[in-house]
Measured scan of single mutants.
Amino acid sequence: TTIHVGDLTLKYDNPKKAYEIAKKLAKKYNLTVTIKNGKITVT
């Protein structure tokens, strides 16, 4: 599972963990989490 945050690309083997991290990042920086085709993007 890949999380895209701006220019950063973070890879995680565990999709659930990746989603949790994405949610935390989104909350911290007041951003939105988008999931599309298995890719998690924080914008």
Rank of each mutant, 00 (worst) to 15 (best):
D13K: 10
I35L: 07
T9G: 04
N30V: 02
L25V: 06
A26G: 04
A26V: 04
Y29W: 08
P15L: 14
K23Y: 12
T2V: 12
K27R: 10
K16G: 09
K39L: 14
A22F: 09
V5D: 03
T43P: 01
Y12Q: 02
N14R: 02
G38K: 02
I21W: 11
H4I: 14
G38S: 05
V33W: 02
K39T: 15
G6A: 06
L25K: 01
K23H: 12
Y29A: 02
N14K: 04
T32N: 09
T1Q: 07
I3K: 01
I40G: 01
V5A: 04
T2E: 11
K28S: 02
Y12D: 02
K24V: 10
L8R: 07
T43W: 09
T34K: 10
I40V: 05
I40S: 00
T41W: 15
Y19T: 04
K16C: 14
A18C: 11
Y29R: 00
K27C: 06
I21F: 13
I3T: 03
D7Q: 14
N37Y: 08
H4R: 09
I40R: 00
N14L: 05
T34A: 09
T41S: 09
L25F: 06
D7V: 10
G38Q: 04
Y12K: 02
I35T: 05
I35M: 08
L31Y: 05
V5T: 02
K16I: 13
K16S: 10
I3H: 03
L25W: 06
K17E: 12
K23Q: 14
N37M: 07
K11C: 08
V33K: 00
G38A: 02
T32P: 03
Y29F: 11
D13G: 07
T32Q: 11
I40K: 00
A18L: 08
I40H: 02
V33R: 00
V42C: 06
P15M: 14
A22Q: 00
D7I: 13
N37A: 11
T43L: 10
T32R: 08
K17L: 15
T1K: 03
N14M: 04
K27E: 14
Y29S: 01
V33C: 04
V33D: 00
T43G: 14
D13I: 07
Y19G: 02
K16A: 13
I21C: 07
L8C: 12
A18G: 02
Y19I: 13
T34W: 04
T2D: 06
Y19L: 15
I40T: 02
K27W: 07
K11A: 10
K27L: 11
G38Y: 04
V33T: 01
G6M: 09
N14V: 05
I21D: 05
Y19S: 06
L8A: 05
K24E: 11
N37R: 04
N37K: 07
T2W: 06
V42G: 00
A22P: 00
A22T: 02
K23D: 07
L31D: 00
H4G: 04
H4K: 12
N37S: 09
G6R: 02
K39D: 13
K16R: 13
P15I: 13
D7W: 12
V42M: 15
T2S: 09
T43I: 12
T2F: 08
V42R: 00
L8G: 02
T34Q: 12
V33N: 00
L31I: 06
K16P: 03
G38F: 04
V5Y: 11
L8D: 03
L8Q: 06
L8H: 08
A26I: 03
L31F: 07
Y19P: 00
K28W: 09
K36Q: 14
L8V: 10
A26S: 05
L25N: 00
T34E: 10
L10Q: 04
I40A: 01
I35Q: 03
L31G: 09
H4P: 02
I21P: 00
L25E: 00
Y29I: 02
V42A: 03
I3Y: 01
A22K: 00
A26E: 03
I35A: 03
A22I: 10
G6Q: 05
T34V: 14
V5E: 02
I3L: 12
K11I: 15
Y12R: 01
L31A: 08
K28Q: 07
I21K: 06
V5P: 03
E20K: 12
L25H: 01
D13P: 09
T32F: 07
N30S: 07
T2Q: 07
T2Y: 09
K27D: 12
L10P: 02
V5I: 15
G38E: 04
L31N: 01
V33Q: 00
Y19H: 08
K16T: 12
K16E: 12
T41P: 00
I35N: 02
V42Y: 03
V5W: 15
I35F: 06
E20T: 08
T1H: 10
V42W: 05
D7C: 14
K16Q: 14
T9H: 11
H4C: 15
L31R: 01
I21G: 03
K36T: 14
I21R: 05
K17D: 09
T9Q: 12
T41I: 15
V33E: 00
L25P: 00
N37D: 15
A22W: 10
K17P: 01
N14T: 11
K36R: 13
K28L: 09
K36S: 14
T9R: 04
T2P: 06
L8M: 09
K39P: 03
N14F: 05
I3W: 00
L31K: 02
K28A: 05
V5C: 09
T34Y: 09
V42T: 02
H4W: 10
A22L: 13
T43E: 12
T9V: 15
D13W: 11
D13F: 08
T41K: 05
G6E: 04
L8Y: 07
V42Q: 01
Y12G: 03
I3D: 02
I3S: 03
A22M: 07
N30G: 14
D13S: 09
N14Q: 05
P15N: 07
Y19M: 15
G38L: 02
K39F: 14
V5F: 15
Y12A: 06
K23R: 11
L10W: 06
A26T: 01
K17H: 11
L8S: 04
L25I: 15
K23C: 10
K16V: 11
V5R: 03
T9E: 12
I35E: 04
K24W: 15
Y19R: 06
A18E: 01
A18Q: 02
K16Y: 13
V5Q: 02
Y29L: 06
D7S: 15
V33F: 06
K36E: 15
D13C: 12
K23W: 12
A18M: 05
N14I: 06
V42S: 00
T41F: 15
V5K: 04
K24M: 14
K39A: 14
N30M: 06
Y29H: 07
D7N: 15
N30D: 08
Y12M: 06
I35W: 06
K16F: 10
P15T: 07
G38I: 03
K11T: 15
T9N: 07
H4L: 12
N30F: 06
T2L: 10
G6P: 04
K36N: 13
N37L: 08
G38T: 03
K39I: 15
A22D: 00
T9K: 08
T41R: 04
I40L: 07
N30Q: 08
K11M: 13
A26C: 13
G6V: 07
L8T: 05
Y19N: 05
N14G: 04
T34P: 00
H4F: 10
L31V: 06
T34H: 11
E20G: 05
T1D: 06
A18F: 07
L10T: 04
P15R: 07
Y12W: 05
K24N: 07
K17S: 08
N30E: 04
K28F: 08
I35D: 01
N37P: 11
D7E: 13
T41N: 08
T1W: 10
K11G: 04
T41H: 14
I3M: 05
T43S: 13
K27H: 10
L25D: 00
N14C: 05
L25C: 04
A22H: 00
K39N: 13
N14D: 14
I3R: 00
T9M: 12
A26P: 00
T43V: 11
K28G: 01
T43D: 06
A18I: 06
N37C: 10
T32L: 09
T43N: 07
E20R: 11
A18T: 02
I21S: 05
Y19V: 09
I35C: 12
K17I: 14
K36W: 08
I21E: 08
K28H: 07
D7H: 14
K36H: 13
K39W: 13
T32K: 11
N14W: 10
A22N: 00
T1L: 13
G6W: 13
K11N: 12
L31Q: 02
D13R: 07
P15F: 15
K11W: 15
L31P: 00
T32Y: 06
K28I: 08
I35Y: 06
T43R: 09
V33A: 02
V33G: 00
K23A: 10
V42N: 01
G38R: 01
H4D: 06
H4T: 15
T1P: 06
Y19F: 12
I40W: 04
N37Q: 08
N14P: 03
E20W: 12
Y19D: 02
